[in-house]
Nucleic acid binder design. Structure first.
Lengths: 151, 151
DNA sequence: CTAACTGCAAATTCTTTGCATTAGT
DNA sequence: ACTAATGCAAAGAATTTGCAGTTAG
């Protein structure tokens, strides 16, 4: 249980998918960084060693992983989506974000999650009842200015 | 105090801006709906009566209003930004969002805000101290499936 | 084998920019 | 009059699509 990723390959296959070289590489890239990578970030990394792999493949692979639930997809407002492996793989803790609206710096914080969790669960329960939604996920983001940009 | 919008015109002028026809129309469009409009939504509405006003003007006006703090800008993940007049104009209450990942339906909820507020304030305080940020704003969004899409 | 995936190029979509003209103040 | 803002057309940037060739199962 050290690594719950063991089954991503199985998940791909069981959906009729194939375990191709680009998919393996892209998964590994995501799995070896705590950062939120954009499609272009991934492409840049991959391109150094595998110049044959194209940007469309990166987009398609990220979408595939997103659809089977292995990726979180964020928009921090800088004009492109960013991805990270999902939290349920216990390698990464669930976290929220603190975003500098000037320089784009992003801080993942986990510090206050515990206090928040109880309330979040309660809120999810009440919301799902009142609005008849099945809630799968949430994004909490705080926006402001980082120490440098505050001047 | 019924309508705090009284001063938006003043705010525009005091920044060296001009009170043009497109700006007045666009402000009124935003002011007469509780919805989250995209630039194209605004353009579509405006275009029926004022076909001369172009999409770039809409984008520029939205950006202007955003910069002087009269607009909130959201990305719900459907590929374009959406805008609404800011909460501090007491016409709209501060609210969070519930988003259907299948059909894109968005529910604004204000119900649990009160309970959340205390925690949010506390979290903002602790985060701003720990990470030395000045926090101006936050976005909380829950994602899931609405009653129709749950099937 | 054969259907899914890739790689390339071209298309789409949303948003921004350059510039000559118009219109607030 | 002065200069910000507009309207048009065209450019940019991120992402998606079509399709012929490749490859995993």
């Amino acid at each position: 249980m050290q690594d719950k990723h063991y089954d991503w390959k199985e998940k791909i296959r069981s959906n009729g998918g194939r375990l191709t070289t680009p998919r393996k590489i892209i998964f590994n890239i995501l799995n070896s960084t705590p950062k939120h990578l954009s499609a272009e970030d991934v492409y840049f990394i991959i391109h150094k060693k595998n110049p044959k792999i194209g940007l469309p493949t990166v987009y398609r692979t990220l979408d595939t992983l997103f659809k089977i639930g292995y990726l979180n997809k964020f928009d921090f407002g800088d004009g492109h989506f960013r991805y990270e492996l999902s939290d349920f793989q216990n390698k990464h803790q669930h976290h929220h974000h603190l975003i500098c609206t000037k320089c784009g710096k992003i801080v993942d914080y986990t510090d206050f999650i515990e206090k928040e969790t109880k309330l979040v669960n309660l809120t999810e329960k009440e919301l799902s009842k009142k609005y008849n939604f099945r809630i799968d996920n949430h994004i909490f983001q705080f926006y402001g200015l980082c120490n440098k940009c505050k001047k």
